[in-house]
């Protein structure tokens, strides 16, 4: 295993700095929302993690197609890495949303279309790893995983558009308003700064974690190859 490239080391540090700045902007710089109070501040990380996670799931679906065409296990490793990091980010999204919902909607959870599709998406990708665990043959595992991730990838756009297509109480902050939404708010200029910075910061953090996870996958592959060689 080669040493960590200098670019990745720099990206690790940049990610940490961006996370710090984004936290500062969300907790200190952005003004307090008058109706909901401080809990509205979780919105910045909620959207930041949701955006990167959904993009990651779509990226994984794209890698699935590439794997099915090229049959190169490299693409399988890229896909697994994208799904694993996205799964962690999406877990944060759901938990932050639930925490926000408690004071805003007076409940931790409701089976609203957005919340339901988000929960289904998370469960689909947890099941993805369970499926992979159950298959020993690497090629078969990659093939099954690719087909599953390709179909599972559909859940990402469905989750994104759920609040735009169905009647829901989940607010649409960007790109439209929903008559039934509860807890929506208009962003001030300072809120927009914190919001867009969080989107940028989480995109960089995602790339950093993703790159590190790919390297881990490559190392795992090397160990598995050597294990086969030694046991034969």
């Amino acid at each position: 295993m080669q040493d960590k490239p200098i670019t990745l080391k720099v990206l690790d540090i940049v990610s940490l700095i961006l996370l710090g700045i984004s936290t500062y902007l969300a907790l200190v710089f952005a003004p307090t929302e008058l109706v909901m109070g401080d809990v509205q501040r979780v919105f910045y990380f909620h959207i930041g993690t949701a955006w990167t996670a959904l993009m990651g799931f779509i990226l994984a679906a794209v890698f699935s197609v590439v794997y099915l065409i090229k049959k190169d296990l490299k693409w399988d490793r890229y896909q697994v890495a994208a799904i694993e990091v996205s799964l962690v980010f999406f877990f944060i999204t759901i938990v932050l949303g639930s925490i926000w919902a408690r004071p805003a909607w007076n409940t931790w959870w409701t089976w609203d279309p957005r919340l339901t599709t988000a929960a289904v998406t998370e469960l689909i990708y947890i099941a993805y790893f369970m499926l992979r665990q159950g298959i020993d043959d690497p090629d078969r595992r990659a093939r099954f995983g690719a087909v599953y991730a390709l179909v599972g990838g559909l859940s990402a756009p469905i989750t994104f558009f759920a609040i735009r297509l169905f009647r829901t109480i989940h607010p649409v902050v960007i790109g439209g308003a929903n008559a039934e939404a509860e807890g929506g708010f208009a962003m001030t200029a300072d809120m927009r700064v914190a919001f867009f910075f969080a989107l940028f910061a989480f995109t960089v953090i995602f790339v950093d974690l993703y790159w590190n996870r790919i390297r881990l996958g490559n190392l795992q592959e090397k160990v598995e190859q050597l294990k086969l060689k030694v046991t034969l």
């Binding site: 907790l27 909901m36 109070g37 809990v39 979780v42 990380f45 932050l96 408690r102």
Partner: peptide, 15 residues
């Protein structure tokens, strides 16, 4: 404005 800072702290801590 309600005091919902406890929820905010819990959210960021979990994240």
């Amino acid at each position: 404005t309600p005091d919902t800072s406890g929820y905010m702290i819990a959210g960021y801590a979990i994240a």
